[in-house]
């Protein structure tokens, strides 16, 4: 299963589902990371974590452990 964490900078992916439950998952979805959304992986932070992605006109950062809950098609 490929997750957002597996994307390399510059690569694109489309969200299939967001795993887990509770506040983190809801926050991720409230930010527009819902199934069907296309994302571009922009970069790793200088220390390797978190990562930055681009989603429908804005930039978002999330930790790798959170990115790992976002499963791509």
């Amino acid at each position: 299963m490929r997750t957002l964490k597996d994307l390399r900078p510059g690569e694109k992916g489309r969200i299939k589902m967001v795993k887990g439950n509770g506040p983190i998952r809801r926050r991720i979805m409230d930010m527009g990371l819902v199934p069907g959304t296309e994302l571009v992986m922009e970069r790793y932070a200088p220390l390797g974590d978190p990562i930055e992605v681009k989603n429908h006109g804005f930039h978002l950062s999330l930790r790798k452990e959170e990115a790992d809950t976002i499963i791509l098609e």
Binding site: P23, R27, M31, P50, F58, H59, R63
Partner: peptide, 12 residues
């Protein structure tokens, strides 16, 4: 408890 999400916007 659960760690807080770091889902954060990087505004323009």
């Amino acid at each position: 408890g659960e760690t807080e999400p770091f889902v954060m916007e990087l505004p323009i």
